[in-house]
């Protein structure tokens, strides 16, 4: 099982991000981590939330364009050099990362990297072979 990411289209204008957050907040959707990719006109808000399906429902009701897709969540040690090591695996196997972001777990010694790949299965296989633990349920951790 992969982690489901919720992505939202927002115009790069004051108040637009706020509107999305308001909708999610009102429906009790908790955001574990997020990242925004921005262009001059628009941005894409990508989030890991405790209830992606509920998020999609709430946003659609308010005519907000959104989608969900699978991302790879990998647990790494929260210490210098560990991200380098993880990425090295992908580089050696020529797996291209579309984008990535991270959060640290509450208990403190681990971080979770969220990776977006075109070929998520190949990336998953690579990480498993290198002994990384793949996170499949974010909600029990950060939420």
């Amino acid at each position: 099982m992969n982690v489901t990411q919720l992505s939202v289209f927002i115009e790069n204008k004051p108040g637009h991000l706020q509107n999305v957050l308001k909708i999610l907040g009102e429906k009790n959707i908790n955001i574990v981590t997020l990242t925004i990719a921005e262009t001059s006109d628009f941005g894409i808000l990508r989030m890991i939330v405790n209830d992606p399906e509920g998020g999609v429902r709430a946003l659609r009701e308010s005519h907000v364009t959104c989608s969900t897709n699978d991302v790879l969540a990998v647990e790494i040690d929260d210490k210098p050099g560990s991200l380098y090591k993880a990425i090295d695996t992908f580089a050696r196997r020529k797996l291209n990362i579309e984008y990535m972001y991270a959060f640290t777990e509450k208990r403190g010694d681990k971080a979770v990297m969220i990776f977006r790949f075109d070929d998520i299965d190949a990336a998953k296989k690579a990480m498993t072979e290198e002994g990384y633990s793949i996170v499949s349920k974010i909600d029990i951790m950060g939420a």
Binding site: I44, C66, N69
Partner: peptide, 15 residues
């Protein structure tokens, strides 16, 4: 207007 058929989580796709 970007509807869900056009939308992607990747900037390069929208560009």
């Amino acid at each position: 207007e970007v509807n869900e058929k056009l939308f992607s989580d990747e900037v390069k796709v929208l560009n």
